[in-house]
Nucleic acid binder design. Structure first.
Length: 486
RNA sequence: GUGGAUGUAGCUCAGUUGGUUAGAGCGCCGGAUUGUGGUUCCGGAGGUCGCCGGUUCGAGCCCGGUCUUCCACCCCA
């Protein structure tokens, strides 16, 4: 019985036209990565569950796609006496009314989950990379600069710019604390989007400055919550003060927070920086001072790397807090300056101890991740893909039948040996159909070699763009193409 | 995970207060041109109206459920 074909929610097929445009994005990013000295690695689509869980916050854990154990996973439960009795209780009528079914189910699931699922699809490329570094530490020369372009999966609800399967293009440096790495990443971001011809805003902030700010406001014990609300500053403005109040932050803390919310908005300003510097100094908040120092180092290095520029190469946004829980230093985010997609198309930052949880302590890393699918959507909406996104077939030989096709083959070989993409239509179809095929595929030249041409030792070449057709000596076929190459 | 929309031909969409054989444009196929695409003209194929159930004499239209896509929130690339 025929079933209606479909793909799972949030996943997509890509046509040849789409793939050519996607490859153009990957190619562009990859070239820049390599130019800055990064080398590729790949990791499996699946990781062990314990590698991923607990790394992305509660919200993140919920979005991890779990993979059911293959084979008879349910018998893993029933053949384990403890697990078996635990699950049987759910169906025991004696417990009717006395058992909180939902709660009991959650507890039982968390205890026996490994029997049911012990693998998961990777959620990002950074955590698998951290695992890779620890696992292969003896074969790695630090600082280790790697890039990785692979799909990741999130069990999120799909919407604009949000997919359940999408590609990330990551570049990370691990084993170096120098701010030069941050500067290089920013330079790469700038170059990638310049090459793609896309106007972007590069936003930078520093978690240590934010940590210092949290201390000043006496909210360091609720740091993540503090950040989540601060991050909304560019959207709701001073309305975040209410959000802090709603969240139960103390009046004194909120008043202190308000002192730093200047009229200049979310961007750093010299007065704000002086204010922070003075306060950090007065109260001896070293982490904040450290953050300010690093921000300045990054600023100087980027200017030196890219040449000073009155507009600046990036914007420092002190309310920028986004990024995963593990960021500890500089944080980056990139948004398209035009188009309807407001979410970030690229993001990253420094994480001081990501490998610690896998047993390798005190190794700092910093990385950046490009969201290829979102970049695609923006370029598409703005019509910014180049016309000729890839070289397709240049020449099609018409097929008149076995005898004529046999005569075309040596010429086909000659054209290909010259590095020109060419093909022979496989069937002796009507000429109308063969020409329409060339037209649909955007093939500029069609070579016609029927009995008349063969008899005269010539080949007719038609330029589909101009509609002109000329006869060439078979030996001069390449000239027909070169003449019109643009 | 919360809230709100959407689904009619391959694509973009129309379809009156529920009423007989559900339409258009584009695309596709064929012909005009038995060795010439794109333009033009003529003809043709293609739809269990997302799926399941309900209300009704009667459902593309009303109701419930479900799936998809999309939007906002949450979060993020």
């Amino acid at each position: 019985m025929a079933q209606k074909p479909s793909v799972p929610k949030g996943t997509r097929d890509f046509s040849p036209e789409e793939m050519l445009r996607r490859k153009y994005i990957f190619r562009t990013i990859e070239k820049v990565f390599q130019k800055y000295g990064f080398l590729p690695i790949e990791t499996p689509a699946m990781e062990n569950s314990e590698t991923l869980t607990g790394k992305y916050g509660d919200e993140g854990d919920r979005l991890i796609f779990r993979v059911l154990n293959s084979g008879t996973f349910i018998s893993n439960v029933t053949s384990n006496p403890v697990a078996r009795s635990r699950w049987m209780r759910l169906f025991n009528e004696a417990d009717e009314g006395t058992l909180n079914v939902d709660q009991y189910y959650q507890e039982a699931l968390s205890k026996d989950l490994p029997l049911i699922s012990n693998k998961a699809l990777r959620y990002d490329l950074t955590v698998p990379f951290a695992r890779y570094v620890v696992q292969h530490q003896h074969e790695i020369t630090f600082p280790f600069k790697r890039y990785q372009i692979q799909p990741v999966w999130r069990a999120d609800r799909p919407q604009k710019g949000r997919y359940r399967e999408f590609y990330q293009c990551d570049a990370d440096v691990i084993g170096s604390t120098s701010m030069l790495n941050e500067a290089e990443l920013i330079a790469m971001v700038k170059e990638v989007f310049e090459r793609l011809g896309l106007e972007v805003q590069i936003l930078v902030n520093h978690r240590k400055v934010l940590a210092g700010l949290a201390k000043l406001c006496r909210v360091e014990n609720r740091f993540i919550e503090f950040l989540t609300i601060l991050d909304k500053y560019d959207k709701v403005g001073l309305g975040i003060l209410e959000l802090y109040a709603d969240a139960g932050f103390s009046r004194a803390s909120i008043e202190r927070i308000e002192l730093f919310l200047t009229k200049e908005g979310v961007h750093w300003s010299t007065p704000l920086e002086s204010q922070l510097f003075a306060q950090f100094t007065t109260y001896g908040i070293d982490i904040g001072l450290q953050g300010l120092k690093e921000m300045n180092l990054i600023q100087d290095s980027v200017d030196a790397l890219l040449g000073s520029n009155p507009i600046g190469h990036f914007s420092s946004v002190f309310s920028l807090a986004r990024g995963l829980d593990y960021y500890t230093g500089a944080i980056f985010e990139v948004k398209a300056a035009e188009g309807s997609l407001q979410s970030s198309i690229c993001g990253g930052g420094r994480y001081d101890d990501l490998t610690g949880i896998f047993g390798l302590k005190g190794v700092s890393g910093v990385g950046i991740s490009f969201g290829a699918d979102r970049i695609y959507d923006v370029l598409m909406e703005l019509g910014k893909f180049p016309e000729q996104v890839a070289e397709g077939t240049r020449l099609l030989f018409v097929n008149f039948g076995d005898r004529e096709a046999a005569h075309a083959l040596p010429l086909l070989r000659k054209v290909r040996e010259a590095g020109i993409a060419a093909e022979l239509y496989p069937d002796a179809a009507k000429l109308k159909k063969q020409f329409a095929y060339a037209d649909a595929k955007g093939i500029p030249y069609v070579a016609t070699m029927g009995s008349e041409e063969i008899a005269q030792g010539i080949v007719s070449v038609k330029d589909l763009r101009s509609g002109e057709q000329k006869a060439w000596k078979a030996d001069d076929l390449l000239m027909a193409l070169e003449d019109h190459t643009d």
